[in-house]
């Protein structure tokens, strides 16, 4: 398992990406086709979140099924990060429900949510800057007390760069490497559902492409992914389904392929004129 993962990752890095990606995506799409019968892993129902006097989310509904990659798109301030933080318990909703595996988890404090199987790679990476790569990963495995070797192997297989730099202080890593570390750290808690908050933020397009390939790989290994992005094109190419969030409300939703070709999306997020 680990060795094939490493193989795939290296291939991806070597630039033979397209074929591998196509394979992975086809597999996932096949899974998504039977999606209707797959149980919902995460459900948001009428979720409203206030920041003081401002309502950041005005009652949104969203479903993530087992095995999917779901993209949550939107501009700055649309409420994407608020949604993720509410799911992982860092914020409390004013109304509505968050259900994970059928159980209500809104109001469960953040440090218990991790134990339920939700991993959160926060916006802006937020690695522990004065700790080494390895110590960061150890913190990711906090719920188990200490990191299991097979989890470390898995992360290092996905991100060989991190294996090379395991003793390096995280604050001295490049932006792309820090993002890899943030994702790897979230994976160390063996999440069923991985929440990724703008992994492409501030990274060069080529790094973003590599990163998204690896996210596809993580999904193919069986982790469900909820991906928050401003980079709509990249996100929709990876995702099975997408939601578009605008000023705290879901404006559009549907299969990723449809959204990708929707003229409104192309205009708003891909910089093309509707005409």
């Amino acid at each position: 398992m680990t060795s094939t993962t490493a193989g795939v990752a290296t291939e991806v890095r070597a630039g033979v990406a397209t074929e591998v990606r196509a394979g992975v995506t086809a597999e996932v799409r096949a899974g998504a086709a039977v999606g209707a019968t797959v149980p919902a892993l995460l459900e948001l129902a009428g979720l409203r979140v206030d920041h003081g006097a401002i309502t950041a989310l005005k009652g949104i509904d969203l479903t993530v099924r087992q095995g999917e990659v779901v993209a949550l798109l939107g501009a700055n301030g649309a409420g994407k990060t608020t949604a993720l933080r509410t799911i992982s318990g860092l914020l409390r909703p004013a109304a509505g429900e968050v259900r994970f595996g059928g159980e209500r988890i809104d109001g469960v404090p953040a440090h218990h949510v991790v134990g339920l199987g939700i991993g959160h790679s926060p916006e802006g990476r937020r690695v522990f800057a004065d700790m080494s790569v390895l110590e960061n990963l150890q913190m990711g495995a906090y719920r188990f007390g200490r990191a299991a070797p097979e989890d470390l192997d898995r992360v290092f297989g996905l991100f060989p760069r991190l294996a090379e730099r395991r003793r390096q202080i995280a604050g001295t890593l490049s932006g792309g490497e820090q993002q890899m570390l943030a994702i790897g750290r979230a994976l160390m808690g063996r999440p069923e559902l991985l929440l990724l908050d703008e992994p492409s933020m501030g990274l060069a397009p080529i790094i973003v492409a590599q990163l998204f390939d690896i996210i596809g790989e993580i999904n193919a290994q069986g982790t469900t992914v909820l991906l928050v992005e401003q980079n709509a094109a990249q996100a929709l190419r990876l995702a099975d389904r997408g939601y578009v969030l605008e000023t705290g409300e879901i404006r559009m939703s549907g299969p990723a392929a449809e959204l990708l070709h929707d003229p409104r999306i192309r205009e708003a997020y891909l910089g093309e004129s509707a005409a």
Partner: peptide, 24 residues
């Protein structure tokens, strides 16, 4: 110990620490 590392995590980024299961 683990406690020391947990303190370091809280000091460096409380939100990230909480997001990984630390009862800050």
């Amino acid at each position: 110990s683990k406690v020391g590392r947990t303190w370091a995590a809280i000091r460096e980024d409380e939100v990230a620490a909480a997001a990984h299961g630390v009862d800050t």
